[in-house]
Design a protein around this nucleic acid. Structure first.
Length: 567
DNA sequence: GCCGTTTTCGGCCCGACTGTTTTCAGTCG
């Protein structure tokens, strides 16, 4: 069983206990354990086999015993007992914004409603507003959120889809002897969410490939299947579409699978204009291309990377030889948004820095939360100073690697920052972010953020729009006005690589580039493992057509130092 | 639930906002 799956069980346990009104600290301990398990680099099974679970901070005797039960039997009795009392659909209700354990409990007990669908029906019939503590506004909000959720229905975060696709691809190579397996579709274009996983497989024995895939533990059901392809429902709720081709046709099939539809449509038109329709993939005849470069060159185009294939002007740019020179992960020289155990991170400054060195970075910025973010143990000016002293001492024998003193300072609801200016002035990297009062009106929020953009001591604005993909909308914000201010002041904007944020998104980042704004691609990592999420931010940058010069942390340390000084 | 060299028991968690109230409970970060 994977770490994330064990973690998930404790999350669910915590949610159910919260519904029952159990002790806050017990629930927090389960949540904490889930977070620790998800962040473990080693497999929890390995640690368990060595009998060293309790050596992990945050895992005590009780939770270790539960992990033991999970890994031995594949289930947890306590969880199953709770699920008999409270249907899991009630947990879905609890996941709606504004609905916590108390309200979900009231809805379940008073209306007998135990799924999102039933709740929508009850709300439409006006039965929710009569419940204690709820009124018309709550009822409307519930309906709005459910509708929004239905609209985005069925889309999975890119990171989840990539993980599953990677697992299945490895399996097909190892077990079914497929020579090549790759995910096409929106995964290959690094779109932020994914509908279905599209796998392209090279093999001379499609029957065997499909048989073996069917036997994979993640595959729950065959939706359809023929000689060359199949569609399968997975246990993670995502559908996997598989196409098996012979090796000669692999590149063509991958190209077609990658899309996007709009991009292929544009190419098709171009091909017809050149009288190339019979030669062009998508026509009834399939041609074996050696690689995608050949496909593009038969249309008179240079290679277009998958991230650009969205019909957002890339074909025209290619025709005019104006495609951007995209950078990649290897160009990233440091991470400028890192949390540690000084606030709500899991690991020490030393460990995060050591990992950054292993990655070949030249620098990182330690940017823990500021004081008002109590839940994250935000740093008071006094503790911040202490942390910065500590960092300076670590830098003393640093042989070329540099840790920047930093802070992620809250932009307070009334504007202004959550840390005295004289301290910010001495801090090498200041990120300013919104973490409270998300529901302010558009003008207030815009003015609030612009106040930070204009602050001379602020280097970077963190996760500008505050969205959490599939969970929380952007706050009301006039992005255009903020971009204008950032361009005027030379303030850097963050591309947050956290797969549920990706904020700026590709569209906003491209608008920022057009205005000459510089950006930083950062992970916002709260533990070692999440420092690995940089590729997701890099993908946003690529989808936004950014080049090296647009992104400050492609600069080496000496150059970055100059950029930061200039502000 | 976890943790611990001042403690094996008692601390761990806080303030703002919202919608519902008519003085506050629930939710959120």
């Amino acid at each position: 069983m994977r770490n994330i799956e064990v973690a998930w069980i404790f999350h669910e346990l915590a949610d159910l206990l919260e519904l029952k009104g159990e002790d806050f600290f017990k629930i927090r301990a389960y949540r904490n354990a889930a977070r620790i398990l998800a962040g473990l680099e080693e497999s929890v099974e390995e640690i368990w086999k060595r009998g060293e679970l309790v050596k992990t901070p945050g895992i005590g005797r009780n939770i270790a015993a539960k992990i033991d039960e999970i890994l031995t039997t594949g289930r947890l009795r306590k969880l199953e007992d709770l699920l008999r009392e409270i249907p899991s659909g009630v947990l879905d209700i609890m996941s709606l914004p504004g609905i916590g354990p108390k309200r979900a409990g009231i809805i379940f007990k008073n209306l007998g409603v135990s799924s999102i669908g039933e709740l929508a029906k009850a709300a439409r019939e006006g039965r929710v507003k009569s419940l204690p503590g709820m009124g018309g506004k709550t009822e409307n909000a519930i309906l709005r959120y459910i509708e929004a959720r239905e609209n985005s229905c069925g889309r999975t975060l890119l990171v989840t889809a990539r993980e599953l696709a990677g697992e299945l691809a490895g399996y097909l190579k190892d077990v079914a002897g497929a020579t090549r397996v790759e995910a096409g579709g929106s995964i290959r274009r690094w779109q932020e969410t994914v509908g279905d996983i599209d796998l392209v497989v090279a093999s001379d024995d499609p029957g065997k490939v499909l048989d073996i895939l069917e036997s994979h533990p993640r595959i729950k059901e065959v939706i359809e299947r023929d000689g060359q392809s199949g569609s399968f429902q997975t246990g993670w709720g995502i559908v996997v579409d598989v196409e098996v081709v012979s090796g000669d046709f692999f590149e063509t099939a991958l190209f077609l699978s990658t899309g996007s539809k709009a991009h292929l449509g544009r190419l098709r038109k171009l091909g017809q204009g050149q009288g190339l329709s019979a030669d062009f993939p998508g026509s009834p005849v399939r041609f074996a291309y050696k690689n995608e470069t050949d496909i593009y060159s038969c249309l008179g185009l240079p290679y277009i990377p998958p991230e650009l294939r969205e019909d957002r002007g890339e074909v025209e740019a290619a025709l005019g030889n104006r495609l951007p020179e995209l950078f990649d992960l290897r160009d990233i020289k440091g991470d400028l948004h890192i949390h540690t155990d000084w606030s709500d991170g899991l690991h020490s400054v030393e460990r995060m820095a050591a990992r950054a060195r292993e990655k070949g970075y030249q620098y990182i910025a330690i940017t823990d939360h500021s004081q008002s973010l109590k839940i994250a143990r935000g740093l008071s000016p006094k503790r911040l100073k202490k942390q910065h002293e500590h960092i300076r001492s670590l830098n003393e024998n640093s042989d070329g690697f540099y840790i920047l003193t930093g802070i992620e300072v809250d932009i307070l609801p009334k504007g202004g920052l959550d840390c005295p200016e004289e301290i910010l002035k001495e801090t090498e990297l200041v990120i300013a972010s919104v973490h409270s009062a998300f529901k302010q009106d558009r003008d207030t929020m815009t003015a609030r953020i612009i106040s930070a953009v204009e602050n001379r001591n602020v280097d970077i604005i963190g996760h500008l729009t505050g969205r959490l993909i599939g969970q929380r909308d952007e706050y009301a914000l006039d992005v255009e006005r903020v971009l204008e201010a950032a361009a005027d002041c030379g303030t850097i904007l963050e591309i947050n690589s956290s797969p549920d944020r990706l904020d700026l998104n590709d569209v906003n980042a491209r608008r920022a580039k057009e205005r000459g704004i510089r950006m930083a691609v950062s992970t916002d990592a709260h533990d070692l493992k999440r420092m690995d999420e940089m590729p997701y931010g890099v993908a946003v940058a690529r989808r936004a057509w950014l080049e090296r010069e647009n992104v400050v942390n492609t600069a080496g340390w000496e150059e970055l130092r100059k950029i930061l000084k200039k502000k």
